[in-house]
Each structure stands twice: as structure tokens, then as C-alpha cells.
């Protein structure tokens, strides 16, 4: 993918995600991603929760020491009660879709899943190479990820912005049961 199309795609992704109440950043490197995280207001308490064994996750594990260097305390997600309303959580996405500003999360383990369900601000990392223009690509990925076998992903979510409701008098309110903020960092 050329630089130009990546930039265009990212712009569209950002525009759509912002329209859905989310936040998108572009980082040239993991270091830059760590800088964005460390400077984010949601990390004012200098702590973040991550899925178990995140340090071994390619290529994202390397960001943990960088965050630690920047004074961020990292906790590993455990039972739901301990993750509930944690100020910030960090996980990684399989891919991102510019058309809708969505990320695709595919985690089997409950502790990894609840990082994106129960924290107050959810940060997600996605590789620029997995940012696709249209939902059709998500359809293909779903087909691949749900294929039977030891690597089958049982629980996949397309996440687009924070949790929201307009049930009461159609007043849009952000943050119901899920996170109140979603911040996606697309890393080159």
C-alpha cells in the first residue's frame, strides 16, 4: 500500500470513528504509540490494564516496557470484578475498517475480552497494514477467523466508538455498560 492511500484511508477511518464518538491516532512507530498513550488524559492515574500475556503478543508486546519507562503501571486483566471500571485498558485489533471507523477484536479468553468491555477508556492498537477500506474485508476476516480448528476465534466484535444509548428521549448518552471512550492507534 502506498503512503498516499494509507493516509487517505487513515483520514477516512478517523473521520468515521470520530463521527461515532471515538478517537483515532496515527503513529509512525510503537514508540510514538507509547508517547500518545502516556500523554493521554485517560492515563492521568498512570495505570492501564492489558490482556494476559500481552508482552508475548506480536508486534505489540514491546510497547509494555515503553509504557513502563513512561511511568505507567501495567496490570494484567484477571476476574471481571477487578477490571470493572478500571480507568484504562489496552488491547489489540485484528484489523480496522475505514468505511465505518471500526476495529475488529477477536479474543477467546474472558480476561482479554473484558479489557474492551468493562474499562472506562479502551485503547486499541492496530497495524496500518491491516487498515482496510470496506466492511467486505471484515467479512473475509470473519470467515478466516471462525474456521474450525485450534485457532478458531469464538468471540469476535466489530467495535465502533464508545458504548452509547439514546433510549431516553433520544438523548445521546455516551458510556452505558461499556467503555465511555474508545481510542484507536493505527501504527505503521
Amino acid at each position: 500500500m502506498t503512503m498516499q492511500t494509507t493516509t487517505n484511508l487513515f483520514q477516512r477511518f478517523q473521520q468515521r470513528l470520530e463521527a461515532a464518538g471515538g478517537e483515532a491516532h496515527y503513529a509512525e512507530s510503537l514508540v510514538e504509540a507509547a508517547d500518545i498513550l502516556a500523554a493521554h488524559p485517560a492515563l492521568v492515574q498512570r495505570e492501564i490494564v492489558v490482556p494476559p500475556a500481552f508482552e508475548a503478543r506480536q508486534p505489540w508486546g514491546a510497547i509494555l516496557p515503553m509504557l513502563a519507562e513512561r511511568g505507567i503501571a501495567i496490570s494484567e486483566a484477571g476476574d471481571p470484578a477487578s477490571v470493572a471500571d478500571f480507568p484504562a485498558g489496552l488491547s489489540s485489533a485484528e484489523l480496522a475498517i475505514a468505511e465505518t471507523g471500526s476495529i475488529l477484536l477477536a479474543e477467546n479468553a474472558l480476561p482479554a475480552r473484558i479489557v474492551s468491555m468493562l474499562t472506562l477508556t479502551h485503547f486499541a492498537l492496530a497495524q496500518a497494514g491491516t487498515l482496510y477500506p470496506m466492511l467486505e474485508e471484515a467479512g473475509s476476516a470473519l470467515q478466516r477467523l471462525t474456521a474450525p480448528g485450534p485457532d478458531q476465534r469464538h468471540y469476535i466484535s466489530l467495535v465502533t466508538g464508545p458504548s452509547r444509548t439514546a433510549d431516553i428521549e433520544r438523548t445521546l448518552t455516551i458510556g452505558v455498560q461499556g467503555p465511555r471512550a474508545l481510542c484507536v492507534i493505527i501504527v505503521e
Binding site: R113, H154, T160, P162
Partner: peptide
């Protein structure tokens, strides 16, 4: 339904994960 491009969460579940 709501004139959203997509809902906040679209979840795909294929058998129990845990």
C-alpha cells in the same frame, strides 16, 4: 434502524469461547 453507519458493537459468536 437508527441512521448509524454501524452500531457500536457488532458481535460474532461461534460456540462457547471459554
Amino acid at each position: 434502524a437508527t441512521a448509524q453507519h454501524i452500531t457500536s458493537y457488532t458481535t460474532f459468536i461461534t460456540g462457547p469461547a471459554i
